[in-house]
Amino acid sequence: MFPAKFEYYAPTTVNQAVALLKKHRDAKVLAGGHSLLPTMKLRLAQPPVLVDIGKVKGLAGIKVAKGGATIGALTTHATIAASKDLRKQCPAITEAAALIGDMQVRNRGTIGGSLSHADPAADYPAVMIALGAEMKAVGPKGARTINASHFFKSLMTTALKPSEVLTEVRLPPHQPNSGCAYVKFPNPASRFAVAGVCAWIALDAKGRCAKASIGITGACATATRASKTEAALRGKELNEETIAAAAAQAADGLDCLSDIHASAEYRAHLVTVLTARAIQQAVARAK
């Protein structure tokens, strides 16, 4: 409940933030604080320096255009959950945002903070992977873009370098005849995902599966892709049987976590159930 001492900086530009991070190698970036501060209060994390980017201009907001959507890193979960434009183009992300924590957490927690923290049970990573989102990171050498598939490295670890700040999330443009959905099985205590699955499905002219992209969170140490299910769906007529058969393979090869809330076996089972549900919903939306 009482964080250890730290030095505090509140830059007003991204470049200032990056310069501070370059100077203080053990510094942590503070956005909404809803991932970092809880660990600091329990003294599980004791960063000597905090770089609070909360006052940096231009990092919050959602832009939805034909070329895709961009979401600023400081955009709160509540803002994302309430965005009608975003929901129209990409309901999975508004769904995921609406299921994070609780109302107060959504009011403060930011998408950039959540993604940078890379909690294995966070909701967004499944969506990022399924939608093929890109993360814009700014560092001392300028900006670069990291695809979601390469962003989540391992438990609480991303592809971000210590002196980089995640500034923006970009979602690809909406494709006709495609749909997406996020389905979650919450931990009854923390509300984090015991397992969460996002499915993105594109249909061909005959209503068959042209492409499937499925992201899984909560089940493993890091968010991952249900490759076998994606392959099994491709080109298939989508009905209850084909979806069930494909979803049954969603946990194949996954190294699922085991803890007091769910065994690895149960998590793997949940992944298959949630995958089927997410696909069904995505298909319904694609039609």
């Binding site: 329990l42 009854p188 205590a189 923390s190 803890d259 007091i260 809330h261």
Partner: peptide, 23 residues
């Protein structure tokens, strides 16, 4: 339905906060 304190064999309380003890 939900609540239960859980210790591991070493006597560590695994349900040691509201994050893990389901109210």
């Amino acid at each position: 339905l939900w609540e239960g304190a859980v210790y591991d064999d070493d006597g560590q309380l695994l349900s040691g906060s509201m994050m893990d003890y389901a109210l």
